[in-house]
Amino acid sequence: MTYLVTGANGGFGGLALNFLKELVPQNKIYALVRSEEKGAALKEAGFNVRIGDYSTIDSMKSVLQGIDRLLFVSGAPGNRQAEHENVVKAAKEVGVSYIAYTSFADADHSTSELAADHIFTEKVIEESGIAHTFLRNNWYLENEMPIIGQALTSSKFVYAAEAGKVGWALRREYAEVAAKAVAGTTYPAILELSGEPITYAELAEALKVATGKDIEVIASDDQGFVDNLVAGGLPQPVAEMFLSFQHDIKNDQLDVYSDNFAEALGRPLASRVAALKELLK
């Protein structure tokens, strides 16, 4: 059996590779990177490296030749639907037997703009007939570092999502389930991977406990939220992107409860305080 992880240079893909090598023989693991240079460290760490990207079917056919099980980490927004379709079509043509795909929370019911590409990709995978697991990842706690970092600097935790809730968990927890899936653990076709949904106000209280700092919690309007992130050094367009996430959360796009995550891990998720302490080490 052979295994390939895409996005191998990314934070998620790198974590998944390290979990995967504990579950299957490392000489059977392949990592997809865009260039020899980007694959050098992975080669040195003992992984097989393949060079290519999602841009053409031919590139992906070459990458996936001889691969049995694929961890398909979603690409960057932009031309994502066409690129993802290339991956799935190539996988079908060369005989990949299983795909674990990193999707979006409650994708088939979501109205978030972030969900559209994932809904499309899930459909393409289903229509391919390839056995699969959709890893519907909620939200990485790491995504909140601009807000958390600015809170620790300014002593003000500023958010604009009102009472919207998020099923935060650590990236490593999502990546561990992904590795287990591609390694052959029997999972259902859809895994809703969400922690216990909580509000930003609750997250801020956990941050106070985790750090021992006296932090003012501010439920802000949109402009105040953006201004706070810009004051912390984030470029205006990036701050506005984070505001769009706040809008999704305010509209309950990540308020998804499921016990799938702990079951898939085989243990409880890290508590919110423990997770924050780990993140801030």
Results as ranks from 00 to 15, higher is better:
residue 81 Q to L: 10
residue 81 Q to I: 00
residue 81 Q to V: 14
residue 82 A to E: 15
residue 83 E to C: 11
residue 84 H to M: 04
residue 84 H to A: 10
residue 87 V to R: 05
residue 88 V to H: 02
residue 88 V to R: 05
residue 88 V to P: 14
residue 89 K to Q: 13
residue 92 K to H: 07
residue 92 K to D: 02
residue 92 K to A: 08
residue 95 G to P: 14
residue 95 G to A: 03
residue 97 S to P: 12
residue 99 I to E: 09
residue 100 A to D: 13
residue 102 T to M: 12
residue 102 T to W: 13
residue 103 S to H: 05
residue 104 F to R: 13
residue 105 A to L: 07
residue 105 A to V: 15
residue 105 A to T: 15
residue 105 A to R: 04
residue 106 D to W: 01
residue 106 D to N: 14
residue 106 D to R: 03
residue 107 A to H: 06
residue 107 A to F: 08
residue 108 D to W: 04
residue 109 H to L: 05
residue 111 T to K: 05
residue 111 T to L: 14
residue 112 S to V: 10
residue 112 S to P: 14
residue 112 S to L: 05
residue 113 E to L: 13
residue 116 A to G: 01
residue 117 D to C: 12
residue 118 H to C: 12
residue 120 F to C: 06
residue 121 T to P: 09
residue 121 T to W: 08
residue 121 T to A: 10
residue 122 E to W: 01
residue 123 K to D: 13
residue 124 V to C: 13
residue 125 I to A: 05
residue 127 E to L: 08
residue 127 E to P: 07
residue 127 E to F: 10
residue 128 S to Y: 07
residue 128 S to T: 01
residue 129 G to V: 05
residue 131 A to H: 03
residue 132 H to Q: 14
residue 132 H to E: 09
residue 133 T to G: 04
residue 133 T to M: 00
residue 136 R to Y: 08
residue 137 N to L: 12
residue 138 N to R: 08
residue 140 Y to C: 11
residue 141 L to E: 10
residue 141 L to V: 14
residue 142 E to D: 07
residue 143 N to V: 12
residue 143 N to F: 15
residue 143 N to R: 11
residue 146 P to C: 09
residue 146 P to S: 15
residue 146 P to R: 04
residue 150 Q to F: 04
residue 150 Q to G: 04
residue 150 Q to L: 10
residue 152 L to Q: 00
residue 152 L to P: 14
residue 153 T to A: 03
residue 153 T to I: 05
residue 155 S to C: 09
residue 156 K to P: 01
residue 161 A to Y: 01
residue 161 A to D: 01
residue 162 E to Q: 07
residue 162 E to D: 06
residue 162 E to L: 07
residue 163 A to F: 12
residue 164 G to V: 08
residue 164 G to E: 07
residue 164 G to H: 10
residue 165 K to E: 12
residue 165 K to N: 11
residue 167 G to T: 05
residue 167 G to E: 11
residue 167 G to M: 02
residue 168 W to Q: 09
residue 168 W to D: 03
residue 168 W to F: 11
residue 172 R to Y: 10
residue 174 Y to C: 09
residue 174 Y to G: 06
residue 174 Y to T: 02
residue 175 A to M: 14
residue 176 E to P: 02
residue 177 V to R: 05
residue 178 A to S: 14
residue 178 A to D: 14
residue 180 K to T: 12
residue 180 K to M: 15
residue 180 K to C: 13
residue 181 A to T: 13
residue 182 V to C: 08
residue 184 G to R: 03
residue 185 T to K: 12
residue 186 T to Q: 07
residue 186 T to C: 03
residue 187 Y to N: 06
residue 187 Y to A: 06
residue 188 P to K: 00
residue 188 P to R: 00
residue 188 P to H: 01
residue 190 I to Y: 01
residue 192 E to T: 08
residue 192 E to C: 11
residue 192 E to L: 03
residue 192 E to V: 03
residue 192 E to H: 04
residue 194 S to V: 04
residue 194 S to T: 12
residue 195 G to V: 02
residue 195 G to Y: 15
residue 195 G to P: 14
residue 195 G to A: 10
residue 197 P to N: 07
residue 198 I to D: 09
residue 198 I to E: 09
residue 199 T to A: 10
residue 199 T to L: 06
residue 200 Y to K: 02
residue 201 A to N: 12
residue 201 A to K: 15
residue 202 E to Q: 13
residue 203 L to Q: 00
residue 204 A to H: 10
residue 205 E to V: 01
residue 206 A to L: 02
residue 206 A to R: 00
residue 209 V to K: 02
residue 210 A to N: 10
residue 211 T to V: 01
residue 211 T to E: 08
residue 212 G to K: 08
residue 212 G to M: 07
residue 212 G to Y: 00
